[in-house]
Simulated assay, not measured.
Amino acid sequence: MTTAHPLRTQAEALGATLPPLLAEAQHMAATIVLGDHGRRQPGMGDAFWQFRPAMPGDSLRRIDWRRSARGDVPYVRETEWQAAQSVVLWVDGARSMAYSGARGRPPKSDRARVLALALAILLLRGGERVGLAGHTVPPRSGRAQIDRIAEGLLDDAADYGAPVPEGLAPHGRAVFLSDFLGDLAPLESALGRAADAGVTGALVQVLDPAEEDFPFDGRTIFESMGGSLRHETLRAGELRARYLDRLAARKDRVQALARAAGWQYDCHHTGQGAQLALLWLYRAMERRR
């Protein structure tokens, strides 16, 4: 009798949720019109990019005589650099991401997975290599990669997640999706290692509207999703101002860490539609260093 591998057990547990999330991601990706993705610079390739005036040192073979015949200046036909870039995704699967402040609103984990899967679909369609941090799903191209990424989005056991810097491709791109409500030291370390490797990317802080508004009053019991933290108060409303100040300071800190590493930052609420966040992410991946 064999024992099921823990990762396989977790994958089977997610079997009821990942197909709908993948279907939602595919539908959302279909709403985004694909454009040129991050390669807009001259280099080796087959795709035409632009004409430019010929300069000393250009070979005669590079001159486009048809375009040059329109005027007195010879023009060179440039092709577009088409080397695929590697994009590595880290999606926080910790228990804090399972929170939803209202019935019918998706938990943060579902929204983060949908955004990651939809972005992966878009990037793979554009010919890029996409994978997951931690060496579990190395960056690859091709349609089959989206299934590997979907299966790799497994839950963690910790209350709060920490980004995994392993597996980032040198001089590639990366995306971290999390609520970033835990210790920020691992995030700072991961961004530092990414910067040292020439990796640029984006942080997406996914929050529930209740975490932004703090709509609590009277007797309230606050408990972490894993149950390791618990606080009871009879006057929750009196905590609102201090809570909002601390949340604002945390968001500022996350944004400052992103800026210091040369990364972009966005805060997304699960009460909002996901399309705008996906479009922002896709454009963030297009940004040239």
Score class of each variant (00 low, 15 high):
Val73Met: 13
His37Phe: 13
Ala185His: 11
Lys108Glu: 08
Lys251Glu: 05
Ala133Leu: 09
Arg283Trp: 05
Arg193Ser: 08
Leu247Cys: 01
Gln145Trp: 04
Arg143Leu: 14
Arg246Gly: 01
Glu211Ala: 07
Thr270Pro: 01
Arg143Gly: 12
Leu276Trp: 00
Thr136Leu: 10
Glu286Trp: 05
Gln275Ser: 06
Thr136Cys: 10
Thr79Gln: 15
Ser59Gly: 06
Gly43Ser: 12
Leu115Ala: 11
Glu232Arg: 00
Pro56Ser: 03
Arg8Thr: 13
Thr3Asp: 14
Leu281Thr: 03
Ala13Met: 06
Asp159Val: 15
Gly101Asn: 01
Gly35Met: 04
Asp213Asn: 05
Ala54Gln: 13
Ala277Phe: 00
Ala13Glu: 06
Leu257His: 11
Trp49Arg: 14
Val114Trp: 08
Gly38Trp: 13
Val254Pro: 10
Asp183Gln: 00
Arg67Asn: 05
Ser224Glu: 06
Arg240Cys: 09
Ala47Val: 09
His269Ala: 01
Phe48Met: 05
Phe222Glu: 02
Leu244Asn: 08
Ala277Cys: 08
Gly15Lys: 05
Arg61Asp: 00
Val87Met: 12
Pro165Trp: 11
Arg52Lys: 05
Glu166Ser: 15
Leu191Arg: 06
Asp110Gly: 01
Ala158Asn: 11
Gln205Lys: 07
Arg288Trp: 14
Ser59Trp: 15
Ala157Tyr: 11
Arg288Glu: 15
Gly152Ala: 13
Arg143Lys: 13
Leu21Met: 14
Val130Asp: 09
Arg52Ser: 09
Leu177Phe: 03
Gln145Val: 07
Glu151Gly: 10
Leu184His: 02
Ser189Ala: 09
Thr79Pro: 15
Ser189Phe: 15
Thr233Ala: 00
Tyr75Phe: 08
Pro53Asn: 12
Ala195Val: 09
Val73His: 11
Met97Trp: 00
Arg240Gly: 04
Gly198Ile: 06
Phe51Ala: 08
Ser189Met: 12
Leu279Asn: 09
Pro19Ser: 14
Gly127Leu: 05
His5Gln: 12
Leu7Asn: 11
Leu281Arg: 05
Ile149Asn: 01
Gly161Ser: 07
Thr31Trp: 02
Ala25Ser: 12
Trp90Asn: 10
Gly262Asp: 02
Arg289Phe: 01
Ala120Glu: 04
Ala133Tyr: 09
Arg246Pro: 00
Arg113Tyr: 07
Asp58Lys: 03
Arg287Leu: 04
Ala118Leu: 03
Leu234Lys: 02
Pro42Trp: 07
Ser178Lys: 08
Gly201Met: 14
Leu278Trp: 01
Ile32Phe: 04
Ala248Thr: 07
Glu238Trp: 01
Thr31Lys: 07
Ala261Gln: 02
Ala83Tyr: 12
Asp46Thr: 01
Arg140Phe: 13
Ala69Leu: 11
Val73Gln: 12
Arg129Thr: 02
Ala84Gly: 04
Pro209Trp: 01
Pro165Glu: 11
Glu286Tyr: 06
Leu154His: 12
Asp110Gln: 00
Thr200Phe: 06
Asp110Ile: 00
Gln50Lys: 15
Leu177Gln: 09
His37Arg: 14
Leu115Gln: 13
